[in-house]
Write a protein that binds this DNA or RNA. Sequence first.
RNA 1: CGGGGUGUAGCGCAGCUUGGCAGCGCGUCUCGUUCGGGACGAGAAGGUCGCAGGUUCAAAUCCUGUCACCCCGACCA
Length: 481
Amino acid sequence: MGKDKQEFVAHITPREEDFSRWYTDIILKTDLVDYSPVRGSMVIKPYGYGIWENIQEELDGRFKATGHKNAYFPLFIPESLLQKEADHVEGFAPEVAWVTHGGNEKLTERLVVRPTSETIICAMYAKWVQSYRDLPILYNQWCNVVRWEKTTRPFLRTLEFLWQEGHTVHATEEEAQEETMKMLEVYREFAENVLAIPVVTGKKTEKEKFAGAVSTYTIEALMQDGQALQAGTSHNLGQHFAKVFDIEYLDRDGQQKYVWQTSWGVTTRLIGAVIMVHGDERGLVLPPKVAPVQVVMVPIAIHKDGVLEKANEVFDELKAAGFRVELDDRDTQSVGWKFNEWEMKGVPLRLEIGPKDIEKNQVVLVRRDNHKKSFVPMDRLADTVATLLDEVHSGLYEKALAMREAHTHIAHNMDEFKDALENKKGFVKALWCGDRECEDSIKDQTGASARCMPLDEEPWEGNCICCQEKAQHMIYFARAY
RNA sequence: CGGGGUGUAGCGCAGCUUGGCAGCGCGUCUCGUUCGGGACGAGAAGGUCGCAGGUUCAAAUCCUGUCACCCCGACCA
């Protein structure tokens, strides 16, 4: 190694010093995004968009496998449609962007730029649903949405962001609830098996649920600074929208009935979660399944006879085996420079190949997560790469899980609650009576919001941490993004 | 939306107190030597000093306004 570790990363702010700056340094220096001329809006550059494309591919496959189809609904929603569902308008009105003019002419009815598409989709569903034979409808769309936020941060909160929104229609309440939970489970499995992020699955409180939903379920992840991040939500909409949009069907029994609906979504915010869960002092650490480059090849002594030729052979072989591989054959940067650059960019595996390796018919593979080096015979390369990528994934997941467990505390009273939040950071589990007043009070006193009521919880008994009345729920609290 | 901070070359910064030729490091380009953890030499290009007003013979520097970004809080994916 020779040189001081510090030297490699002198230009990234250390995490302990300032987590926010560390985050900003990384996203800019690794070319994930750039700030745009529009306040609060970002450009997602190819390296960042590549992560999103992989997320899309993984999720889209899961949606299709569970019977969903993609469609596309319009960006513009007439004001009158948004107004229909009272809670929904109230929730979104403060942050919608309005279109008031077409060209030079004032519109007779203002349009909102979708902050979410429930209303326009429901307006269409009302036309499409006639009979129980039309159900269920299982549609999803990939699109952008706009929410006029006051405070913005790349990936975590921007005026415009990319997401997927599923909107389903069912004949029965049970079926809608089943769908809600099914998609929550898709998100959980995806977060853990693709992003290597352990999540707490649970139900939102009335205060925190989606505007217009009967109930909202969530996957909550814990970032390295101890703050929670809502990583995906699945809503049981009940019949709220069906009733205001008149989505009715004629059932087998000859009765007109209102449908039952769900919606669910995840956003480009997931990329922020990946950064804040896995990143380290050297920069990004990307989970292999979404990394735009899974293996970066750095040829050594590139000018020497045969090196580049052999490197290209290996490149072709790995490419053919289905890996996302990149050969860094620039002769303008030194080898050491490339090592540091690609580590900062979070590439899971580095492959070194030089004259000595070629002589021994081997390559050198180095893991991004623990920097372990292995010498691998050429003829076992593809299998070894696959194995190592799996190991990186598991390593990241285990590390993230250990981090979360070390930062999940139980509080039996407000003092313990405050102590855990201030001094230990992370999730604080506590009992709650179910009253909004106590939830508000806890947030006022501590800054922590109710993240969710976990789905899998050991039996418990006790009193509300705030008012001492008999508790109704176990809650995960945390400061959150 | 409140409190604090920062805007000068692609990036990081100095210059501002006390107005007087716009600088430094890195990067970029050319040529050569190098290559197993951020190489070296020589030469070159690159700036409406965030933007708009004002004061002045003269403004990066002083004054007013405005915008953007960052940090800390209240609202949200």
